[in-house]
């Protein structure tokens, strides 16, 4: 019975985590997320942190910043990126991004652009030669 209850609890917390993964771009807050798991707010925060090592709010920020990295790498502007991941303004987005990534979104994008250009110019720089030769990519 105890094991069954534990599994049921895990299902509810995982449901809340997946809710964040799917709705990170929307205006969601802890109350929305706790509702998904049918928990009181404080009980939910404690359980979520014990499983994922982060509060639901910090996890939401992490998901947003991870998505921002993908968008910035795909050459989406800082303004569009901040809107696409649910930030109210590019200023608050830039501040959070810089705090977590230790570089501004523009700096990150510039580095990604340089790397992508290098891959397109000469992909062999990124492939161990043994694989390139064995596959006949290097004649």
């Amino acid at each position: 019975m105890e094991q069954y209850e534990k599994l049921y609890l895990y299902k509810r917390i995982v449901r809340a985590k997946l809710f964040i993964d799917d709705h990170y771009a929307e205006n969601i807050d802890i109350d929305n997320i706790a509702d998904q798991a049918n928990f009181s707010k404080y009980h939910f925060i404690r359980l979520f942190k014990s499983i994922y090592g982060k509060t639901p709010h910090n996890y939401l920020i992490k998901v947003r910043i991870d998505k921002a990295k993908l968008l910035l790498s795909a050459d989406v502007s800082v303004l569009e990126t901040s809107m696409a991941i649910g930030f109210d303004s590019p200023t608050s987005f830039t501040a959070v991004f810089k705090k977590l990534v230790r570089k501004t979104p523009s700096e990150f994008q510039k580095e990604a652009k340089t790397r992508n250009a290098a891959i397109n110019r000469n992909p062999f720089l990124f492939v161990p030669n043994c694989y390139a030769e064995t596959n006949g990519w290097i004649k």
């Binding site: 534990k6 599994l7 299902k11």
Partner: peptide, 8 residues
């Protein structure tokens, strides 16, 4: 956490 990862 294996149980959480399994469920996810």
């Amino acid at each position: 956490d294996l149980l959480a990862t399994y469920e996810e």
